[in-house]
Every structure is written in structure tokens, then in C-alpha cells.
Amino acid sequence: MSFWGKIIGGFTGFLTGGPIGALVGAAMGHAADTGAGRLGDPAQLAAMLGTREQLFAVGVVVLSAKLAKCDGPVKRVEIDAFKRQFRIPPENMGEVAKLFDSAREDAQGYEHFADRMGHAFADRREMLEDVLAALFSIARADGPLTNGEVAFLQRVQLGFGLDAPAWTRARDSTSQKPRPMPTGPDPYQVLGIAPGATDDEARATWRRLVRENHPDAVASRGGGADMVRRAADKVAEINAAWDRIKRDRKL
């Protein structure tokens, strides 16, 4: 399943009310009303998209286009990368292409979409992490990340409400295949808590351990490269344990 299909497929009722082209078409109608086919005021457009479906459909297109623009003229390889990451059905590509072209005229205004998506999908952080990983792939399509692209992605991370481990996973992601089912040691032993611990106790312990073991924290304490690598492995183990506990408890 494509990355786009994976997100839509996991979101019940995503296409209720019409195909994605209709959602993008509504945004394009607004753009036409606000200035000769331009995107218009990004803040106003983001506010207009009242449903999660509309916001997601338009938000990923706008973020991708403005990311491609932030380091200079948009290149074909960046457009191709966008199409690979978000596989829009052929019948909807015309509307999406128009919105992409309008959004890429400048790199301004993306913050409104990142913030609105972070608020709307606060209960779907894993999905937002997948979107951030897709944006990393688009940014790398034309070469190593530039300072401007890193700043853009960090602002998207902030708007999405994602933590440092999510940033690391998205940055280091090499594919958009579904994550494998985690295996390994007892997750409660990894966190150092009893199986009978409350949800709040487990969550608080996970957050504390991530904070204490984060590679940046280790580096700030003077840890060398080996210690930082070990810290990264430890945080990955902690996150995997918490993911298993959340899934088992249906949190």
C-alpha cells in the first residue's frame, strides 16, 4: 500500500462526502476568490479547512510544495519525490497539481498548516510522524539537507507537537513501509515498572527515561560519540517498550 493509501486506509471515513479531489477543489475555489489563482492568505485558508479530512488533504500538499521551495527553485526531482510519497489517484492529480503550483510560489505561510494539523491530529501522532518522514524524503530528493530545509522541518515538528524521538525516527526513516511488530524484552522491565502500574505512571516513567537518556542530553553532559550512539539505542528501546504497552492497553 502506498504511503497515502496507508494513511487514508487507517483513517475510517476519510473520504466520506466525496473524493479527495473535491476537498482540494474547495481550497482551489477559495484560492481563486482571493487572488487570480494564487493560494491566497495561508492563515485564512488553513482556518477555512474545518474538517480533519480537508485539512489533511490540503495540508500535505501545501507543506510539500513550500518545503521544496524553501531552498530555491522547485526541482523536478522534488516534485517526483512528492508524488512517490503521497500517491494521489490519477483522476485527482489535476487539482493537486494546481494547488501544489500555487503553494510553491513562495515558502511562506506553511506554519499555519503545521499548527492546525498538529492540533487536529493530536490523537494521531504516529500519522503526523509519517508525514514528517515523507517531508524528509522530499527535502533529500535534490541532495543533502540545507539549513533552510532543516529549519522548515523543525518548525513542522513543533507545529505537529512531535517530540525529539519522533524527529529522529522520521529523519532516519528510509522507507514508508509499515513498522514491523515490535519484539524484544519485557516492556515493563525495560521501563522498570510493574505490570500493574497505572497508565499515568507508565507514561510518566517513559517520558522521564526518554528525557534522561536522549542523545542530546548525553552529549550536553560531555558524553562521547560512543555514549551518544548507545543513548540513541537506549531511547529506541524505551520507545519500543512504551509502544507495546500502549498497544496492549489500547491507549
Rank of each mutant, 00 (worst) to 15 (best):
99 L>M: 09
102 S>A: 13
111 E>K: 05
98 K>Q: 11
110 Y>L: 07
130 D>K: 15
119 H>Q: 10
115 D>T: 02
109 G>M: 05
133 A>C: 11
132 L>A: 06
113 F>Y: 06
120 A>M: 06
131 V>T: 12
111 E>L: 13
105 E>A: 14
104 R>W: 13
97 A>L: 04
117 M>Q: 05
98 K>D: 15
131 V>R: 14
133 A>T: 09
117 M>T: 08
108 Q>A: 13
130 D>R: 06
102 S>Y: 06
130 D>Q: 12
119 H>N: 13
102 S>D: 14
105 E>N: 05
130 D>I: 15
107 A>H: 06
114 A>K: 01
128 L>V: 01
117 M>A: 07
114 A>G: 05
131 V>D: 14
104 R>T: 08
106 D>S: 01
103 A>Q: 10
116 R>A: 10
122 A>Y: 09
97 A>C: 00
122 A>R: 15
121 F>S: 00
129 E>W: 15
133 A>F: 12
108 Q>K: 12
121 F>H: 00
133 A>Q: 03
122 A>P: 03
130 D>L: 14
99 L>G: 02
125 R>E: 06
110 Y>C: 05
99 L>T: 03
124 R>K: 03
114 A>M: 03
120 A>P: 09
129 E>C: 13
105 E>D: 05
113 F>M: 01
109 G>C: 08
122 A>T: 03
99 L>W: 06
114 A>E: 10
123 D>I: 01
129 E>K: 11
116 R>M: 02
110 Y>S: 05
107 A>M: 07
